[in-house]
């Protein structure tokens, strides 16, 4: 079992308590909150995990929290649970990226399966994010001129063409290109292109 954290947000204490028990018994690390506000306040660090979220709560409800998190680009897959599920609400939740939408009372197996999927998604997202961060870090090491050259390189231009575009000598471009390739830790232009796609860097 992973050591990822499952966050439970439900205003109903008995439900919260039972879920904590169940999830701990299933081997998860669980943190629970009585309201969306409490969750937002109590979760400063960005840990990898998923959210088991009640739809209807006083003040900020589940769907609203989902929106807040999305806006904050917080990567936290959500499993919704609800005492009275209606179709419009579930559709809205799923469209906004929820992993699952479970009506209370739900079977533990269903919940745990959903959580597994959510954590898997969370793991994927986390590794992607880590990869992206590494690329960004490498990119950050490039000088502005090297970055400029890099954008031209990934479009498949030859050194001569780049030199013409940038109004400099072919030789200079070759030096910048070599440094950029080294700093980006790639051996081939194809590899560089893949990395740049991952962080959304396109040609000029």
């Amino acid at each position: 079992m992973s050591t990822h954290t499952v966050f439970v947000v439900d205003d109903e204490s008995s439900v919260r308590k039972s879920l904590e028990r169940l999830l701990r018994a299933a081997g998860y690390h669980v943190e629970s909150f009585a309201s969306a506000d409490e969750f937002l306040r109590g979760e400063p660090e960005e840990r990898i995990g998923c959210l088991v979220l009640d739809v209807k709560m006083p003040d900020l409800d589940g769907l609203e929290l989902q929106q807040v998190l999305a806006e904050a680009d917080r990567c936290l897959p959500i499993v919704f649970i609800t005492g009275h599920g209606d179709i419009p609400t579930s559709v809205r939740a799923m469209k906004a990226g929820a992993v699952d939408f479970l009506a209370k009372p739900f079977d533990a197996d269903d919940l745990l399966a959903a959580i597994e999927r959510a954590l898997e998604a969370a793991g994927n997202q986390a590794s992607k994010r880590a990869e992206r961060a590494e690329i960004e870090r490498r990119l950050a090491a490039l000088t502005p001129r090297e970055q400029e050259v890099l954008r031209h390189v990934i479009t498949g231009q030859l050194n001569k063409q780049i030199a013409a575009d940038l109004g400099t000598s072919e030789k200079t471009i070759k030096v910048h290109r070599g440094r950029a390739m080294r700093k980006m830790q790639v051996q081939s232009v194809a590899e560089l292109v893949r990395l740049c796609e991952k962080v959304g860097i396109h040609g000029p």
Binding site: S14, S18, R21, L22, A25, G83, H84, K104, P105, A108
Partner: peptide, 24 residues
């Protein structure tokens, strides 16, 4: 809707508690 909610809450808690106990 409200009444279903009122009944489903304790039912959910009961089921989760029971299944937690089974696992334990």
């Amino acid at each position: 809707a409200s009444l279903a909610h009122e009944i489903n809450q304790p039912l959910a808690a009961i089921l989760s508690n029971t299944q937690a106990a089974q696992r334990l």
